[in-house]
Amino acid sequence: MSVLVLVEHSQGVFKKKSLEAVQYAAHVAKELGTSVTAVAVGNVDNAAMQGLGAYGANKVLHTTESRLENFNSRAYTKVMLAAAQKESAKVIVGLHDTVGKAVSPRLAARLKAGMVAGAVGYPDLSKGFVVKKNVFSGKAFAFVNVTSDVKVITLMPNTFQVVKGEGSATVENLDIAFDDKDFSIQVKEVSKASGSVPLSEAELVVSGGRGLKGPENWHVLEGLAKELGAALACSRPVADSHWRPHHEHVGQTGGTIRPNLYIAVGISGAIQHLAGVNGSKTIVVINKDAEAPFFSAANYGVLGDALEVIPKLTEAVKRFKANH
């Protein structure tokens, strides 16, 4: 018996959200009185894998196969199935991201396992196996009781603080016999944004709405984001008007995010927008309309024109950084 967790890395460095998933798995394993096995795919060195022990992994199963370099849900599912079988996994943890949302459901379907997608809490074993998750795009939470023998969970990134502890994991090879069918998707082109923090993983987010008046004013927001080390987001009207790319759109029909800090500039705060961002730990709203509904969902509010307030805030952040 064990708790299995799929870990993701970027050029050999495990992602923070994967460390969070390992830590989550360790918590579940402790409750169940069992151990944690992480599954790592691709080019990553032994020291990095052993290092997962500091977050609670006892063992790491490592599989190398050059064709796994580009993520593909069918092949990854095969890896996870082999690992689940080898470790008699009872709980399988992944992330609620583009990888986890493709592998975990396949795995659940194959194992006929109940699944909690987008968990924001640890399983409550006193009532069965009850896990809290986001529903209605952040407008509410549901408690899902998983009744199958094997349970599959995808964890919402940035739900728990990652704390590094002690320990080292053992590393074992996981050999898998792949078929050509597992790699029948042909990758034509990959473009990855370099340098910037992906929105879904960002701890700090600066977001703009129609109050910025036009795409030509975005450099003001970019200046603040750069100073803070924050990712950029936008409201739906902004994405629909092609002021900003669609992937920056957060809200009920865009991305759902839960950063530590969300600064909303010139966004009125329609219920659909709030749905995507109200998991944020702290919300700052900057708007010139005192009646903007967003103020009642905010922790801090600034009444004023976006284009006048933002440069002042950017300067204040600069001064803060100089003193800290």
């Binding site: 009532k127 069965g128 939470f141 998991g279 103020f295 509010g301 004023g304």
Partner: peptide
């Protein structure tokens, strides 16, 4: 087979009130 059921719901805690800061 049904392998999971929703046993309850919860609304997010209401924000305690916004602190306004001068621009």
């Amino acid at each position: 087979d049904t392998v999971s059921t929703i046993v309850g719901y919860e609304l997010p805690p209401a924000k305690t009130g916004v602190k306004m800061i001068s621009a």
